Simulated assay, not measured.
Amino acid sequence: MDDVTYTKGIYTAVASVRPMNAGQYQGLVSLARDDGEDLENAIYEVEAASGTPEEALEEAKALAHRLLGELEL
């Protein structure tokens, strides 16, 4: 499953999925800030597990939108 990338100003959020135990999947968001001098990265995990990778990716995309929406440029 392909990752989905969103940008807002100097921030880039990449939504992805990782497999968990018992056939479950978890959505992840990697949030990077690149201001030209420093590159800062943070990983955020969707709290709930999903039964399919598609559901997990949808949850990760929602988290990415929420994280980028909270940023002030």
Rank of each mutant, 00 (worst) to 15 (best):
G9H: 10
Y25G: 03
Y44G: 00
E45M: 09
V17G: 02
R33I: 05
A64S: 02
E72S: 14
G51I: 04
T7Y: 04
P53M: 03
E47P: 07
R33F: 06
V17D: 04
R18K: 14
V29N: 00
E40L: 13
S50W: 06
S30L: 13
E59A: 14
L57N: 03
E59S: 07
A32P: 02
G69P: 00
P19E: 10
E54R: 08
Y11E: 07
A32L: 11
E70M: 13
G27M: 06
P19Q: 07
T52H: 09
A62W: 00
R18F: 08
V46P: 02
G9Q: 10
V29E: 00
A15S: 15
A56K: 01
G36H: 04
V4N: 01
E37G: 12
T7I: 08
E72A: 10
E58M: 09
T12C: 01
G9A: 11
I10K: 15
G69Y: 01
G51R: 08
G69D: 05
V14R: 08
L31D: 05
A15L: 13
D35L: 07
A56Q: 01
D38E: 15
S50M: 11
A13K: 02
R33M: 06
R33V: 03
Y6L: 15
Q24Y: 07
S50A: 15
E58K: 12
L73H: 11
G69A: 04
Q24A: 09
A32S: 15
Q26V: 08
G23W: 04
V46A: 14
Y11I: 03
M20N: 05
E54W: 04
D38I: 13
E47K: 08
S50L: 10
E70C: 08
E47R: 05
L28Y: 02
V14H: 08
A56T: 01
Y11T: 02
V17R: 01
M1K: 10
E70G: 13
T5W: 05
T7K: 12
D38S: 14
G27Q: 05
V46C: 15
E40V: 12
A22T: 04
A60L: 09
A62D: 05
A49C: 09
V4W: 00
D35W: 07
K8D: 13
T7E: 12
K8P: 11
T7W: 04
G69I: 02
L67Y: 02
S16H: 08
Q26K: 12
L68V: 15
T5P: 01
T12Y: 03
A64H: 00
L39G: 07
R18H: 09
G23T: 04
A13V: 04
G69E: 02
L68N: 07
V17Q: 01
E54F: 03
A56N: 01
E72C: 12
S50C: 15
K8Y: 14
E55T: 01
R33C: 10
T5L: 09
L28E: 05
G23I: 07
Y11W: 15
R18G: 12
E40S: 11
Y6R: 13
G9T: 06
E59W: 01
Y11R: 04
A49M: 12
E58V: 08
V14W: 06
V14T: 15
